[in-house]
Nucleic acid binder design. Sequence first.
RNA 1: GGGGAUAUGGUGAAAUUGGUAAACACGCUGGAUUCAAAAUCCAGUGCCGAAAGGCUUCUCGGUUCAAGUCCGAGUAUCCCUACCA
Length: 857
Amino acid sequence: MTKFIPSQIEKKWQVAWENSNCFSVNEFSEKPKYYVLEMFPYPSGRIHMGHVRNYTLGDVVARFRRAEGFNVLHPMGWDAFGLPAENAAMERNTHPAKWTQQNITSMREQLKSMGLSYDWKREIATCDPEYFKHEQLIFIKFLEKGLAYRKESWVNWDPVENTVLANEQVVDGCGWRSGVPVERRKLSQWFLHITRYAEELLGAIKTLSDWPERVRLMQHNWIGRSEGAQIKFFLTDNVDDITNIEVFTTRPDTLFGASFLAISPHHPLTGYLSKINSKILKFVSECEKLGTSEAALEQAEKRGVDTKLFVYHPFVNGKKIPVYIANFVLMDYGTGAIFGCPAHDQRDLDFARKYDLPVTEVVCPENENENSFSIGNVAYTGPGKIINSGNWNGLDIETAREVAINAIETGNFGTKKVSYRLRDWGVSRQRYWGCPIPIIHCSNCGIVPVPEEDLPVKLPEDVQFNTPGNPLDMHPKWKYIACPNCGLNAERETDTFDTFFESSWYFLRFTDPNSNIAFDPKKAFYWMPVDQYIGGVEHAVLHLLYSRFFTRALSDIGYLKLKEPFSGLMTQGMVCHQSYKSQDNQWLFPNEVSKKGGEFVSVNDNLPVKVGRVEKMSKSKKNVVDPEEIIKSFGADTARLFMLSDSPPDRDLEWTEAGVEGSFRFINKIFKLTINPPLKPKHKLNRNEIKDLSPENLDLLRTSHRSVQIIGDNIKRFSFNKCVAQLHIFVNAITSFTHEGEVGERVKHHVLELLAQALSPFTPHIAEELWSNLGNSEFVSSSPWPDIFENLLIDDTVEIAIQINGKVRAKLRLPLDLPKEEAEAAALSCKEVKKYMSGKEIKRIIVVPNRIINVVG
RNA sequence: GGGGAUAUGGUGAAAUUGGUAAACACGCUGGAUUCAAAAUCCAGUGCCGAAAGGCUUCUCGGUUCAAGUCCGAGUAUCCCUACCA
């Protein structure tokens, strides 16, 4: 018997696909378009199981939609800028460009070994000047349109990586990669005006009906819209030329409860005061330290310092309110100042109790007496009736809010205001391996964009990585240049873009990857939006929000006409594996562990191994399995099938050795079907013939056609695990079929063709092998999804459960669509009903056609 | 502190609209084959019980002829977010 050697079959078909260019597409087609995209990888050098899962999911969709008759765009590329290349440069003394290129080459080979149906002619790498020169021009257009601007700002400085981190790259006060506490520094930075689109990005979330609800919710929370009022509190005595403090609040209804104002340690007023008051200066510098490393500690204690300044209460004549500087007030939200209403905000209450400030109740809960209601150490934040608030007394809080805003506006010391948590996107990074920001700083002309004809600004190749800091900034020549405006000596911007910049428009470049403009609007119009985008949920907020912003911003500078880039989104779960530790507490790779009689032991010393949790594959815990090894020993089809079996795509998947072997066995079973299958019959089986077939032939045909139907339906629903289950049923039906004679041969040939077509999206190599051995010369990968014989989908009898008082007591096989009366009669005459109902009165009979009959007694 | 998700056999899971719970697989048990093993094939496998039968979708309550599915209360686990005024 021929032995199944996956690598031989798989390589053969991969080469054949590549030579035929069968996955290459263009935009001029009669067929409807379908754009399926997986998040492109960072070229780390080796693919991991997360990639295998991601790209398998995308490939199933791409192959299926192609078979369904769509013109399918399915591209792949490289998110090729980023810090690891610089780290590698330092560690191994290779240039980032070279290191990245090598990684791309080996990862491309690995991806090709998976049999993915990409249009490789559209491959892009973001570190290619042909890619990023368009990005530089986009930035200049953003600048012209006011969508990019420069701002001095406090940044999170990672002292290990010598770079600025975005707020979202700071986790628990530490750098997301380095894990060390970040420091605060003030730098001049480039920002993109994403907040200009805050309302629109928020509002359009509801149009993204094919996105997971939780991603939409995360974006909603991230934008964080809150409605309230901005209120000016006038100082009793001016400080320098400052006359008032502006405050944002969502609770203007509690204004009468205000007992202090608190401003941020980074508020301009604080800056002024700390110059003239050493106590304040000391407090501010303490906040600096606490601000990062001891975030948790800080949370516990609210601290502040009295400025000895006072403001007037806007509605209470003569009432003066003290101004504090407080560590819990953030400068970058609202105005950097709040009014404290201790009775109805827990933080304010904590603060007031600490500094002995008055607590005035202004909202009384419904079940409390307004004369006796008093706050202890828990603030009341619920609904109720306004009290102690002049002529607002008696209003509910919602009405009071409107009345308050009216009064504030009428009094001319504030306005209704909407605030967002979302902040503008800082795109400057002090790194070498990124897209240069195309700007020249001239002492004469100021900020001068690099002229379009001088683009791209390329990275210099001769750079040193042995000193900390940005190599571009330390390069002896690169940054010195004549000003394009006035010709005087000037300097290039040495910062590069955040790598999220590249990934915010790559999906557009794929629509026209070799163009000498960013992309042809007509081509982008044809292919966009991405019909199905697939990737990890870790990008639920940033990458997806930035891409949504970019699509709008690009539309506003005339590049295209589109709002939403991704109409369908699927976020896949993580690939997990059990972790193991040796006796001396060292992590062990799965292949360093073997199972002996139900016990796990170390391969090295045969000692028992401590079995840990099943968790996300990670190098640090060594619970990783290398896809290349799996593909080498079991084949890509097995790896792909395993990824799709059992767990639905959005849930975490546990990689198990037993599971892989199970998938491998199934592929082997199919392989046996590819050997000497029936010859291609002269006449194809047609749907009118089936009435003359034997029950056995008919059963097989019925199972086969139903399977194809079920598989197609479930692909559309992303229920690939159910597709695999149905494939098992399908294959089992074929292997247990004993075909006889010419008719049997024709039936078997027919169902094997269906099988090859149904397998093709999932395990394309073995499907291609089977299809070819059945006598087909075209690729199954290019064949249409099979026509289903609808007359095989319905059976003429159904099994109906007979319930007595809601419990199933019998099952009857009855003709399909049997009239109610006859069904009732059949149920009543069965012996179980007679047994259970003897001597009892039948009160009711419920008949659910073709499903159930419930006899109630 | 805030928000969200999930909970079904030994395990991963299925049950699309309230209508036969556990499809399909993994694992396990027994058998066939084999000098032996691997592979393969066949049979069994939710739980309790010798059987008859009873019980079963995290717990408690409710609606219904009928609840894994709907409603209310609670528990556990995971994820996100966090002084957002």
